[in-house]
Simulated assay, not measured.
Amino acid sequence: MRLSPDARGVYPIAPTPFLPDGRIDEASIDRITDFYGEIGATGLTVLGVMGEAPKLDGAESAAVASRFIRRTRLPVIVGVSAPGFAAMAGLAKTAMDAGAAGVMIAPPSSLRTDDQIVGYYAQAVEAIGRDVPFVIQDYPLSFTVVMTPGVIRRIVSDNPSCVMLKHEDWPGLEKISALRGFQRDGSMRPISILCGNGGLFLDFECERGADGAMTGYAFPEMLVDVVRLTAAAERGQAHDVFDAHLPLLRYEQQPGIGLAVRKYVLMRRGLIASDAQRRPAGGLSPAARAEVDFLLGRLARHDARAAVAA
């Protein structure tokens, strides 16, 4: 099942579950993978920023990706970003041989000019193979690389294997509109646009033309609901569902502790056994845990799915 430009829906960013001693928790990988299939996700993404990919060695990355792929019938995108193309190409080959749908590539923070960015993706494609579908990860808040709509159009035009943009610019609504405008005027072929940033702007991103979400909020069911309701032109209902989750969504977006919040909630929901992260990692203080518990209790008043964790 190869990733294509018409991909839509929700591809949750899967966490990498760890046991308290730092070992990979394979049972929790199986449990959360099954959960994604049960809630109506259309795919999933592994070894992303929130998957703690840089904390895994090469063998662990291959093993984690392969386990997710074997466990599900959903298309799986594997993050293969690496400092060098040898490591990127190796993981991409392993992932695709295991049955991945495609790979995701983030730009290194050293890139500054438009030509450098376009050139980097050309070299990455040469390294992984021109037949491997790939996703551009556009996350300037983390990577400090600014990709204008024009640069993305150049990458798409130069590389037929580019089928998707993971859009995480902020503010970024106008970028979505610009890219869809390129498609309407025929200056860029269609690609899938899935949005990140924890889903913080998903309500309006879908209305601007995004095809769905690729992010890791601890209640991905909400993301599925918003995408589905927006597609059905149920705007009021989509915003009502989104608004109920917004306080927890905002809390989870705090730099430095966002993953700790997400893993804590997933643990409370019984989807992973432990909220452990590999070091270096930011944890939650007792006060922060109490605040998350408070937010879960408030959310449960509007969404019964939160009652299990509250």
Results as ranks from 00 to 15, higher is better:
209 G>K: 07
213 A>E: 04
214 M>K: 01
215 T>A: 13
208 R>K: 14
217 Y>H: 15
200 L>E: 11
200 L>W: 09
209 G>S: 10
209 G>N: 09
201 F>N: 11
216 G>D: 07
215 T>Y: 06
213 A>K: 00
214 M>V: 08
223 L>V: 03
210 A>D: 03
211 D>A: 10
211 D>N: 15
218 A>T: 02
197 N>M: 13
212 G>W: 03
212 G>S: 10
194 L>V: 07
220 P>N: 09
197 N>C: 14
197 N>R: 13
220 P>V: 11
203 D>H: 14
194 L>K: 05
198 G>W: 10
198 G>N: 13
218 A>N: 02
199 G>H: 03
213 A>L: 03
194 L>G: 05
208 R>G: 01
211 D>L: 03
197 N>W: 07
196 G>F: 06
217 Y>I: 00
208 R>C: 14
219 F>A: 02
223 L>S: 13
207 E>C: 08
196 G>S: 11
205 E>W: 00
197 N>S: 09
203 D>G: 14
194 L>S: 10
203 D>S: 12
210 A>G: 09
221 E>I: 02
198 G>D: 06
198 G>C: 07
204 F>P: 00
193 I>P: 00
215 T>R: 00
201 F>Q: 12
193 I>Y: 09
217 Y>S: 04
195 C>H: 05
202 L>H: 07
214 M>P: 00
206 C>G: 02
203 D>Y: 15
193 I>Q: 03
219 F>G: 01
217 Y>T: 00
200 L>G: 11
